[in-house]
Design a protein around this nucleic acid. Sequence first.
RNA 1: GGGGUCGUAGCUCAGUUUGGUUAGAGCGCCAGUCUGUCACACUGGAGGCCGCGAGUUCGAGCCUCGUCGGCCCCGCCA
Length: 588
Amino acid sequence: MNFQKRTNTCGELRKEDAGRNVTLNGWVATVRDLGGLIFIDLRDRYGITQLVIHPETQTELAERSKEIKSEFVIWANGNVRMRENPNPNIPTGLIEIRLEDFGIINKAELPPFEIIDEIGTSEEIKLKYRYLDLRRHSMQRYFITRNQVYQVVHKYFNENNFLEVETPFLMKSTPEGARDYLVPSRIYKGRFYALPQSPQLYKQILMMSGFDRYVQIVKCFRDEDLRSDRQPEFTQIDLEMSFVEREDIISIAEGFYSRLWKEVLGIEVKTPFLRMSYNDAMNNYGSDKPDLRFGLELTDVSDIVKNSGFKVFSDTVNAGGVVKVLNAKGCAEFSRKKIDELTELAKKYGAKGIAWLKLIDGEINSPISKFLNENEIEQIKRITSIENGDLLLFSSDKWARACTILGALRLEVAKQTGLIESVKNKFSFLWVLDFPLLDFDEESQRYVAMHHPFTSPMDEDIHLLDSESSKARAKAYDIVINGAEVGGGSIRIHNRDIQEKMFKLLGMSNEEAELKFGFLLDALKYGAPPHGGIALGLDRTVMTLTGTDNIRDVIAFPKTTSGLSLMDGAPSNVDETQLKELGLKIIE
RNA sequence: GGGGUCGUAGCUCAGUUUGGUUAGAGCGCCAGUCUGUCACACUGGAGGCCGCGAGUUCGAGCCUCGUCGGCCCCGCCA
């Protein structure tokens, strides 16, 4: 099809261009036919420019323009001139194009929803017509930010001597951790490649090859259920460094984030970032990724109530559990119904119930106050710094669960009281450190690596591996922004003996370790430098930069919560011949 | 694997509580009027498998069961 190529975009013409003859290409946003005057808004990625037709003197043009509808793709030629009535709301608002000639490059059916910034269209419709949804400027700006992040990654890490290296997407399945996406091998029937959950082992091996500093913007695949911040394929800024300690990784990552915030948002982020141990994070905020933009810290009253007449508390403490309290500031007016709703939320996290205590006009109001003596109440009041109008929420359980329950309530209370809304323009960067090396998995009744099996224990905890391995801490670190985990990493094991011991702790026999990770153990034999790294979640970073709470907004073609791609219909059935070629048979 | 919530016009929703005449609104769309609009305005009009399938009933958008799909959460995500 023939068309006049654009001389300018729809976002760049200004008053200085008045008098020029220009040609624009773009999509018709709106047509406003006033009878004696016709306005057409033409849109492209760069903006919107107004075209104007005067039917009185441009009869033929006006007649032809009647065919133009929304979302038609057209070329438009005319003269730039100053507007009689400027529109201060758009950058091109001072000028307009007096149309001389135009052509319809491609017609468009009426779209299922309007291509405007604020729309209430359901996610289902928007995902089905993703190409139309992405045509909206409010969507395009997410990808403009995302592109800025790519550029900063390339610049920053190049300046710091990192090499970008691509690692395979078809790799060996390593069933530790998340479920693998498998790809059947045609050549070796019954055998499978796996898509990488992360390039973890490749980047470690690159260190053994002497690449020294590696970075890659890379897709990772995990076959697990989705969430508003989780997609089955997502992007990491993956990096690894040799001859380093934890501080080196932390400082490189901090440099990257402060550079990113400066270039994208123009905000100076103070470094070094705050740091907190995993233990303190759990104890004080009930989360391993605490949002520090507001207070509402947890306190521990186990010692106060361990001999209490309230059996739920004293029995829990005597059985090795804890009693934790969240002071919900100013929430004493919460109704019984509201507290019941908080209890329901707590139950999702495994709580059997929630005890509460209100202080109103100096009077205690609580269903459990009759079980507590005066001394206990006084001490609780003091340690929680309760004031008139406050509501205390108690959780008594095993330590981790009690903390997690109140951590969830903390976020809910912050949401309900408007606390989160009040800090939405702030950024809180935090390192969470000193994670446990191992985590006991109730399901399989064995220890699993909390980070991954290649994470180095802390030097001073290595002696614990043989005696009290559950107490050993890891050289691992998570980076948390505004309560979202955006990255995590560790110093790796570079000693074959320790790596073998680690596999053993995870219940893996020598043979099994050899079978699954023999190539790594082999590589460790031939001179492995001390090394470590971190993986930064690119999608979540873009979410934080743009302020969206949904990961679908920052991924061009995302899946739904149930893992479907509504636009192209993946996953789909395949031909019998394809299956046969792969040696596969579908079992109903 | 489990829980919650939603599905009615092209889009967003009301109607479902208590089954009962012809299923409504706003936006969009179509037609007409209109010379400075920019979410143009005004007048008129068209537009429905009430997600799908069974069941209960004289009668189902509304009740029951199943199923498909969206969103959120728990588990899961080394």
